[in-house]
Design a protein around this nucleic acid. Structure first.
Lengths: 221, 221
DNA sequence: TAGCTAACGTACTGGTTCGTACATTAGCGT
DNA sequence: ACGCTAATGTACGAACCAGTACGTTAGCTA
């Protein structure tokens, strides 16, 4: 099965620290997302790698640090995606809608990440708190929202008195819930929130919701 | 500390099956919510009860069934609370806002339940699926929403083409995220979503959001 | 008050799982 | 070519933990 791997590779057993580490992180991400922190098995992660359990401890130190490394990489992916956001050329309403849609898409495309976040919350965000990397890196998306919001509020288009962090929470809530609670919601209400046929429906619903909130006519106060 | 428990009780060691089971469920709820399914320890649950591990297996059969029983009771509490909903005497806008607020309050008051739901989703809702009790009991809240929605849509007050299940998902998203992701959100963005001082702020934000969505002026289509 | 059963306690086991001691090799620098 | 170190593999141990065999007692019933 793995006989013809790559050309000019003797027996496919080459030493490559970076590749080994990346492979461990890939498998660990799946395993932690599959079963939770305590449900994940170090032996299982090792077995699904081309290397051994010894290497996990050699490179990461232990299960706990491995999970932290998994989180760090997962959040890194998000941050990279957020840096590619290009919506500020749009008018505020369109920009916010587009940003919400991209957030929606990203959540849908990374269910493992959502699960890791759920798991980390079960454990009180102890690993994030104990990570230097994850300590102080504000989300690029937040800066984008901040600027769009300022423009929209100055022009009077946005009537809501809301700041970027809260708006981010609002958008994330919807995207997160849809993916994270898919199973219980489906079991209890018989509706699959991640049904591909309903994807556009929910995408539009999110955009409508956020725009309606931001532009609603407010009672004078 | 526990010397003077209750009057007329010889040594406090009385046989009471119902009480023992309830006590196991109480402690198990805390322990599962604290550490997740795999992180929870049956011995720990037993130790924090007035009874022994033997009783857990005697009454519930095993760890898996105990978790299912915990879920069943937790969902039962929700359903009871939903049956007390009394908002239909209000006009549709006020009724929906009130319902959202009550949902908000209930989530805030039951963080353990939120955690159990997160945990159950990590495991693909396997326990709900395997439970007869949890299989077929539609939420009373859903019926209430359905009726309010119908009234509001007929009168033209509500312009959004949304059904009860989706609206319920929208409201729950916000309430759930705020509690469930409190820790990672706080660690990453430095804002405690469950800060008591901000409680009214978020409560109002949810109501504004839902009402704005339902009553927004729609482009003719 | 004898006896019966539900309710309860103790002590243990067998398997699992994280982590490590020890042995080995690839491949770079000189 | 020769060593030196990063990288890797093997085998094992010690603790932990879900679940159980076996023994005991409360309290109702007749």
């Amino acid at each position: 099965m793995t006989s013809v791997d790559e050309p000019a590779r003797p027996n496919g057993r080459i030493r490559d620290a970076a590749r080994t580490q990346a492979e461990i992180l890939d498998v660990a991400t799946q395993e932690f997302a599959r079963a939770g922190y305590d449900g994940a098995r170090v032996d299982e992660i090792a077995a699904r790698t081309r290397t051994t359990k010894r290497m996990i401890y050699y490179y990461f130190g232990g299960k706990e640090q491995l999970f932290t490394a998994v989180l760090e990489r997962a959040y890194g992916v998000i941050r990279e995606a957020e840096q590619e956001l290009d919506v500020e050329h749009l008018d505020p309403v369109a920009a916010i809608r587009r940003l919400a849609e991209l957030t929606f898409d990203h959540h849908e495309q990374h269910p493992d990440f959502i699960r890791l976040v759920s798991i980390e919350n079960i454990h009180g965000a102890a690993h994030i708190a104990g990570s230097e990397k994850l300590g102080k890196i504000g989300s690029p998306a937040l800066d984008v929202i901040r600027r769009i919001l300022a423009t929209g509020q100055e022009s009077g288009l946005f009537t809501a008195d809301v700041d970027a962090v809260d708006l981010h929470a609002m958008i994330s809530s919807f995207c997160f819930f849809r993916v994270a609670n898919r199973h219980t919601f489906g079991a209890l209400f018989g509706r699959d929130l991640v049904d591909p046929a309903q994807r556009e429906h929910y995408r539009a619903m999110l955009g409508d919701m956020v725009i309606a909130y931001l532009t609603a006519e407010r009672a004078a106060d």
